[in-house]
Write a protein that binds this DNA or RNA. Structure first.
Length: 455
RNA sequence: GGCGACGUGGCCAAGUGGUUAAGGCGGAGGUCUGCAAAAUCUCUAUCAGCGGUUCGAUUCCGCUCGUCGCCUCCA
């Protein structure tokens, strides 16, 4: 299969270096509820993981939690909680959200606060090689010492300097030098180190965790496009400087960002939609579909219209999966071609829109052939397998709570209409249906009787 | 200012140097159904604009216009 690599800018053949595909994905900073932008990113890497396994690879995926940083410290202080309590709360919520979205668990979820010894080891190693230097309780990475700095984000140190908004009053040798260790201010959580009490810089934790859990060189490093610079650029710099091994990651995969309206969804713009809010109105299938509908490297757009549209589209799959199959019929819908198309699309840098189109084509052909009494069992099984195993869909109807009393009331009306229809009093029957429609009930008449559901 | 991405039907969104430019939603019409719903069939685009390369470009190159992201914490 082919994958795009941000570093080289190329799409090229992917094979893991060893027996296991080693993947590191940058996780969240748990200081507030995860939003649908996070959902998009983790769904993308979930599908990557699922697809690699489908293609027969063993996969080891590691995803961190940045459970110590400025925002966590500030917010914990505001709420009168410890950083640990606050982070723990949102980590729990993160797992609940991902479960609800049917995102499979990574193999490891290391936390920055539990990796401090490894981080200190790296910082010390970087100082020893003169890639880093202590300054006033902090330790900074020396950007000018790294010739390759800027290779991921395709810019030179000089270019960055031109547009950089430089922190004032910080004792750095070069404006672009970044902190690998931050000295603690009074009252902040801190760990002892050779440079005084402090905590890890943001970037170093990912380098340390990737190194500890996956080794010096990994196959795929993933994250949102907004992490390319500075976070991933800095990870490369630290990791390769510390280990002397390159490449730190063989493929850099970055998902596009989720926009709302025409702007990025972000805290500062106040347009965040949390995952739990979205799940109040839409199914996880609909949310996953909105991610799969467009290519992972392009931007996503969040809108209520699109989510509602997805629920309608998903009905096509549910109908096709329920279509009657005439096992042993003379004519049989051959599933092999669809599978080949699906794999061909996914092998091409995870072209989920095209793979999804294959599934829709399959649904249409299943429905058409089922009407003529063909055996569509193989195709239905394939549709279900690809949809659930790789795309992580459930194909379940969104459950709407209907109380027992209301259900009895509805059923009584439905029964009355059935009687009226049997008596061919269609005008009255239609009147009853109007009443039911007003209650949000949709009826379906078929040879087997009348069924109803509430949207 | 620097770096990068993008501009395809009413909306969303794949794709290709040259036979019919996927798919979803929506719209119009037909089949089926007492009527609906569902399903199915048919129809619904010349690919931002201008130049260039080419026998031929929506697809390659340049410019213009427009949009977005990153350059500061961010999936």
């Amino acid at each position: 299969m082919k994958l795009s690599d941000t570093l080289t800018g190329e799409k090229r053949d992917f094979e893991p270096a060893g027996d296991v595909v080693k993947i590191y994905v940058c996780g969240v900073t748990p200081y507030s509820a995860s939003h649908v932008g996070h959902a998009m990113s983790y769904i993308v890497f979930d599908v990557l993981h699922r697809y690699l396994e489908y293609r027969g690879y063993k996969v080891r995926r590691v995803q961190n939690f940045t459970d110590i940083d400025d925002k966590l410290i500030d917010r914990a202080a505001q709420q009168g909680k410890t950083v640990e309590e606050l982070a723990g709360q949102y980590i729990d919520e993160y797992f609940e959200d991902m479960d609800a979205l049917n995102v499979r668990k990574a193999d490891e979820y290391p936390r920055a606060t539990q990796e401090v010894p490894k981080i200190i080891e790296m910082v010390a190693g970087l100082i020893e090689k003169d890639f880093a230097y202590p300054s006033h309780g902090d330790v900074y990475f020396r950007v000018t010492k790294d010739e390759g700095y800027g290779k991921l984000s395709h810019r030179s140190v000089d270019q960055m300097r031109a547009g950089a908004r430089v922190e004032a009053g910080v004792e750095k040798d070069h404006p672009m030098d970044f902190a690998v260790w931050k000295g603690a201010k009074p009252g902040e959580p801190a760990w002892d180190s050779p440079w005084g009490p402090g905590r890890p810089g943001w970037h170093i934790e990912c380098s340390a965790m990737s190194l500890r859990y996956l080794g010096e060189s990994i196959d795929i490093h993933g994250g949102g496009q907004d992490l390319v610079f500075p976070h991933h650029e800095n990870e490369i710099a630290q990791s390769e400087a510390f280990t002397g091994v390159a490449p730190f990651a063989r493929f850099w995969l970055h998902n596009g960002l989720l926009l709302k309206g025409d702007e990025k969804m972000s805290k500062s713009l106040g347009n965040l939609v949390s995952i739990r809010e979205a799940l109040e109105s839409y199914s996880s299938d609909a949310i996953r579909l909105s991610v799969l509908k467009s290519h992972y490297r392009g931007p996503g757009y969040y809108s209520d219209e699109a989510l509602a549209e997805n629920d309608r589209a998903l009905n096509r799959f549910r109908q096709a999966l329920q279509a009657p199959s005439n096992a042993g019929a003379g004519s049989k819908l051959d599933a092999a071609g669809y599978k080949e198309r699906f794999i061909g699309a996914m092998d091409d840098d995870l072209n989920t829109p095209q793979a999804l189109a294959t599934l829709f084509d399959m649904a249409r052909d299943i429905n058409r052939d089922a009407e003529t009494g063909s055996d569509v069992g193989d195709a239905q099984a394939l549709l279900r397998e690809l949809g659930t195993a790789i795309f992580g869909l459930t194909f379940k109807e969104r459950e709407v709570e209907v109380g027992d009393d209301k259900a009895a009331e509805i059923q009584a009306l439905v029964d009355r209409r059935v009687e009226l229809r049997a008596a061919k009093q269609f005008a009255d029957a239609d009147g009853v249906r109007d009443e039911l429609t007003a209650l949000g009930v949709t009826l379906t008449d078929s040879a087997g009787g009348t069924t109803w559901h509430v949207d």
